[in-house]
Write a protein that binds this DNA or RNA. Structure first.
Lengths: 243, 243
DNA sequence: GACAATATGTAACGGTCTGTAACAGCAGGG
DNA sequence: CCCTGCTGTTACAGACCGTTACATATTGTC
């Protein structure tokens, strides 16, 4: 996703001004380009299946082809924190580069398919193809920027604002993939959204209800319809919204 | 800093078990190694002076030599979020790689000195020295892991636990640099700590007061003395602490 | 040394979010 | 069909933190 694309359908996405940078991975990764240099293995995952778990040794990166996954950081005392959601085009596992083992779980939230990119092969390819190396570096840096952006949001936004930002972010990412940004299905439960946004699942429910009551969105189970993106953005920016 | 070193002086640093991975940059960067390949410029900063500001074009990385700096993400509406504190050995600016401009401010909190590493030169050097490239990649990935770790903390810790974790993190980093981990000076104000931990400065004050009342620490202005690191760790892990 | 500006400490109050609980909708299995 | 389990919704009580206000301490400047 890049923010320019997002701006096209959400003309007055004022909330993006409230967050300094794009929220997702702006560095596009082309699977065909990689395939030219790296032996790529396909891998299918059923809903609920783990791509990998914390503690497993790190030996490959993954590029999501279809489906939807969540990444969870798991503490030894059992506390769990959803660190992000991954969809088509997103790289998974890059944060484990340089570490012996993964420190997070990656779970498919629906039937998903990923390309497995063995890391040693990636390394060799990067040595010969500087552009590939650069793409990887950019993806890492973009990930940092995205995380920081959310940290700003979690540090200064109310529950309602966080949920609104979350919905707009999902919408942009859907749009970047060619899907409708105004109508999509939440693949994750309220508890996962809450974990990602540092809220409880009841609070997420309440926020969604309030946003729906304000006419910004329509919620039916996990189906979301964005009725007024500008109003959603205004919720975040604390501007008084025109009815 | 690496967590192994931290464990040596904080024998029962149980809170590290509560956070999955090390909190700071585990990939050590050797200035001499870089200097062999890249023209390095020294730069001095007075307290309060900006190393760079959001919006300025990105054209160099910085390695902190002496001093203490904070990095702040600044939103267009003026909200500010401290994203981290940087001390000797830390790389500054890597999150802007691949972007045209910086999206955060970096401010010196005391008189500081940094090595300026022009990015084009870094790029050329990385092309010839794979190890350098790998160090950079590792630093980026470690930064992501560190950020995620703090996200877990902010998402599930109380105010008191966050402050305790913050102090222990600072202590480890001081120790990794050869300074005493039991006695150090906070270079930043309560407001900065609060911003980093998603708290208000009064709350930081209250937490410090409570921790001092429990006998974990001694606070005198910005001077911190850690009396009982194990108790501090226990505060985080929600275990009932032995008096 | 005196003053202003900034940073910090303390307290009371109120709001937001949390925790608990009860209930509704939906899926799977007997 | 009912039963069970899971997810989501709603209501209510309560804890924690933010807000406000003011007092005190420190720093910088004259």
């Amino acid at each position: 996703m890049n923010s320019a694309a997002a701006a096209s359908i959400f003309p007055r996405m004022t909330w993006r001004k409230a967050l300094p940078a794009a929220n997702s991975v702006p560095a596009p990764v082309d699977i065909e380009e990689i395939r030219a240099h790296v032996p790529v293995v396909q891998r299918k995952l059923a809903a609920g299946q783990y791509l990998y778990r914390a503690g497993q040794s790190f030996n490959a990166l993954y590029l999501v082809n279809v489906g939807f996954l969540k990444t969870c950081l798991v503490a030894e005392d059992g506390r769990e924190q959803v660190t992000g959601f991954r969809m088509r085009g997103d790289l998974v596992g890059i944060e484990s580069i340089g570490a012996a083992t993964h420190d997070c779980d990656v779970v498919a939230l629906e039937t998903s398919g990923v390309w497995e990119l063995p890391y040693p092969a990636i390394l060799r390819a990067c040595a010969h193809v500087p552009e590939l190396q650069q793409r990887l570096t950019w993806a890492l840096a973009a990930e940092i920027r995205s995380d920081r952006c959310w940290k700003l949001a979690l540090g200064s936004f109310s529950a309602e604002q966080r949920v609104a930002a979350f919905l707009l972010d999902l919408a942009s990412r859907h749009e970047a993939l060619g899907f409708s940004p105004r109508h999509f299905v939440l693949r994750m439960g309220r508890a996962d959204i809450g974990s990602f946004l540092a809220l409880k699942h009841e609070t997420v429910t309440r926020a969604l209800t309030r946003l729906a009551a304000q006419g910004c969105i329509e919620v039916q189970w996990r189906e979301i319809r964005i009725l007024d993106a500008a109003a959603l953005g205004a919720v975040i920016c604390c501007e008084d919204r025109a009815a």
